[in-house]
């Protein structure tokens, strides 16, 4: 069997969830790889879209930030942040957007912290902040979240709620005034988590080859239903060659 890295597994696991017709909002790093790979794997007719305003970016080379000139080349339209976020806030177009996000902390309802650990005023660890994450999480109908699977990241209560997930459960987004829809899955270095349709709580959707549900639970600060877990297929030789040769030949994100 072909050897592959955690990052390759994660990028492929997310790419497989992107469908033709999706407008994919991606941030910096592995989410760009997933969006690029999806266009070659499952969704040639998906569209890559950046908060900076690049619509249907071509990405001949991997951008290293969402402001990279590589997102501007060959785009259908280059506008600004205001237009990009309006596109997502507007339900006609916003409902087609799948957002790919990452964070430092996640809670059982998929709410995210990418701002600070500890006190907000004088944090123990300061992270970059929302960027467009809070906007995307507020507006669009589906989000995919990349997380490192460990006790520091999977917490029962966030230190700071930067980006809204399902808030505190069923009906909470509607009550707060947010768009319907919310987090769909969490892709980690061990597994893929989903959110229960009724309770909106996180559950284990599947483990990567060689990972058991016990290993997943050990690295989380809250409990999750594991009864529905299925094994996730490893990346195929095709998927790996797309990632390695077409998306990130310099291994800038794959490492």
């Amino acid at each position: 069997m072909t050897r592959y890295s955690e990052k390759e597994m994660m990028a492929v696991a997310a790419a497989r969830e992107i469908r033709n017709g999706d407008v994919v909002f991606c941030g910096t790093g592995i989410s760009m790889l997933a969006a690029m790979a999806a266009k070659h794997i499952s969704a040639p007719d998906s569209v890559i879209f950046f908060e900076t305003g690049a619509m249907d970016a071509q990405l001949e080379e991997l951008p290293l930030a969402v402001g990279d000139s590589r997102v501007m080349y060959g785009a259908a339209v280059n506008r600004g942040l205001s237009d990009a976020f309006a596109f997502m806030q507007n339900p006609f177009s916003g409902r087609r957007v799948v957002g790919i996000l990452g964070a430092a902390q996640i809670d059982p309802y998929g709410n995210l912290n990418s701002t600070a650990i500890g006190d907000y005023e004088r944090p123990r660890v300061r992270f970059p902040g929302s960027g467009g994450a809070c906007d995307v999480a507020s507006f669009v109908s589906r989000t995919i979240i990349f997380m490192r699977h460990d006790l520091r990241g999977f917490v029962p209560r966030l230190d700071y709620l930067t980006s809204p997930g399902w808030l505190d459960g069923p009906g909470a987004r509607e009550r707060a005034g947010l768009s319907p829809g919310g987090p769909e899955m969490v892709v980690t270095d061990l597994a893929v988590m989903g959110f229960d349709k009724e309770t909106k709580r996180m559950f284990l959707r599947g483990c990567y080859p060689g990972v058991t549900p016990e290993m997943v639970l050990e690295r989380m600060g809250f409990d999750a239903d594991v009864s529905r877990a299925k094994e996730i297929f490893p990346p195929s030789a095709d998927e790996l060659s797309i990632l390695r040769e077409r998306c990130d030949p310099q291994r800038l994100i794959l490492g």
Binding site: Q89, Y120, S138, F139, L161, T162, L167, G177, L178, S179
Partner: peptide
Amino acid sequence: PTRSGLGTDIVRRWG
């Protein structure tokens, strides 16, 4: 006005 940030600490917590 915007719908962004409803229910979050970006609205609740001041720097």
